[in-house]
Design a protein around this nucleic acid. Structure first.
Lengths: 145, 145
DNA sequence: TTACAAAAGGACAAAAAGGTCTTCTTGTAA
DNA sequence: TTACAAGAAGACCTTTTTGTCCTTTTGTAA
């Protein structure tokens, strides 16, 4: 569905928010361990998240990452647009550059509703709404084989 | 949505079937021009399609590619599984290896219906059903910028 | 029956995605 | 007030995807 960067960013951010909700500020080591993703890759991705202004970071002893509770919630859409662009949200299932109701590809009619549902999902859900779900931390973990 | 190989395969095959329906057997040059895709890449992809038994080919003067009308229709699902595997059809939106109703990721509930709809679409639609749509050839073209 | 059009095959190359490693900088806690 | 934990930064590497090019084989049409 999403590429690795989006996937790891999503899992990291939900984990950060979940821990913030419990008055913790996790660091890279904790995050990468808990979401089961490569530590240095997560470091790089979170660095980008900080530069984008999605999260804040604290350096030095006891440091880590946090969401500023004063900022608006971060929708999945904003995150996805920043990490992999709008291809999933706008692209034609057939790969045509100009596919629309006047000039539809053979999949247009059936794919439209799917794309709409995806757009609705990523517009309505936020990192915070996902982190609020009970057991969110557990569900963030990449358990299993 | 799909990767390039799937996308080009899809467009090529629909085009081939569309031309077959009109008693033509297009070659690589015609196909790649009409669907606006790199000729040598299309050649390689169609070679794979032949090896998979999805289409037949005729060498020599007047040669090209064709669907055997005696074979069953080729569902999009079969094609997708062959070109890029079942990730889109089975994968978890959150990227978890084991995401299910007992151990759901935070997106599980909302993503499930989307995945189901995609599965329904690719199971029901075939290359042939797409090629039958009026104006299919035009709609296969990648017109525009 | 042969010329040649067209597919088959495979080596190679470029670009993007995914990931690692090392060094530098910062700033908090002791 | 300094030690050091932890993030920042960027070079570099690997794998996968996407694509190109060239040679060989095939088989139909003339």
């Amino acid at each position: 569905m999403f590429n690795k960067e989006t996937e790891y960013a999503l899992r990291s951010l939900v984990y950060i928010q979940y821990r913030n909700n419990r008055d913790n500020m996790p660091g890279i080591e904790e995050i990468s361990t808990e979401i089961e993703a490569p530590q240095s890759f997560i470091a790089k991705i979170l660095q980008r998240m900080v530069r984008l202004g999605f999260i804040g970071s604290v350096k030095g002893k006891g440091g880590g990452y946090y969401f500023d509770a004063n900022n608006a919630e971060l929708s999945l859409k904003e995150l996805i647009l920043a990490t992999e662009g709008g291809n999933i949200l706008n692209g034609c299932g057939f790969g045509l550059k100009h596919c629309n109701s006047e000039n539809p590809c053979p999949l247009h009619e059936q794919y439209g509703p799917i794309r709409d549902t995806i757009n609705k999902l990523v517009s309505e859900e936020t990192i915070q709404s996902l982190a609020r779900k009970e057991n969110a931390a557990f569900r963030v973990k990449n358990i299993g084989t």
